[in-house]
Write a protein that binds this DNA or RNA. Structure first.
Lengths: 141, 141
DNA sequence: GAATTAATTTAGAATAATTCTTGCTATTGC
DNA sequence: GCAATAGCAAGAATTATTCTAAATTAATTC
């Protein structure tokens, strides 16, 4: 067997998709996430994607979501032990969960600020991933 | 039946325990959390508490942990979709998950800082709860 | 372009953490 | 002490997710 590096790649990875081959199912799942940025669960996505791909299975939706997350196209958002939600916003941001309506809102970082300014990180800590989840109520003003 | 508000309370809530009656099981669970502050899972707590209460059931441990969380004596910490972990540190703090060892470290806020200084909260948002989870590697220095 | 090989999808079974139910036990208020 | 209430144990049930095996689709080789 040839060494992995000299074997031909099946499909040259395009930089945009993070090396992920965009099958019909993966594309639809991704498109749906970008069309309605309301932080749907896997089941939500499943129900939506059925409109265009009636035969898709829930397992495939889970698969696609996992791959999209692995390849950095989508973020997985967890609140407490509820179902995971999925978010195509790749900018650094946190989430606010409105207990009144159950909706989740993206929360931007103020420009020029750094979380490291606020936190006392342990000696030698190298941060790979940051998750900020807020819960509360959204009052109309 | 008398209206709920006029019925006598079984036990006057002491301010320390948040109105929670401290049964043997609850006390042991709470003590164990405070003795080893290593963010154990429910099963970890179950195994530890068995030393002093060999007949305790896992369901009771879950019950006790839930009540301790509800009454504000303990915080529930979730990383991704892993088992919940429990933390008796009530000061405002975040958590750092070292992917190298799997351990979780408390991360203090720098004194005099406010997360609201870093985040652009939605209009009218009233924050009830903040969760900051970091993941990365801890290198020895 | 047909055959071959590999990747992907599907459907349903399996898993794991957690919650629920039920019958029993302990505690409380009187 | 007795009735009422709260708490506990054991195991069943639930739920989101993952795994497995077979079928399908796509890519590669000839």
């Amino acid at each position: 067997m040839l060494p992995a590096t000299t074997r031909k790649r099946r499909k040259p990875a395009s930089p945009e998709d993070g090396g992920l081959r965009m099958t019909r199912q993966r594309q639809e799942v991704y498109d749906i996430l970008r069309a309605h940025r309301d932080h749907p669960t896997a089941t939500d996505v499943f129900l939506r994607v059925k409109d265009s791909l009636p035969n898709i299975s829930l397992a495939t939706v889970y698969n696609c979501l996992e791959l999209l997350v692995e390849h950095g196209l989508v973020r997985q958002v967890n609140f407490e032990r509820e179902s995971s939600r999925f978010c195509p916003n790749l900018e650094q941001h946190g989430h606010f969960h409105d207990r009144g309506t159950g909706t989740i809102h993206d929360v931007k970082f103020k420009p020029g600020t750094d979380l490291a300014d606020v936190l006392e990180l342990p000696q030698g800590a190298v941060i790979q991933d940051i998750e900020i989840n807020l819960r509360g109520l959204l009052h109309q003003t």
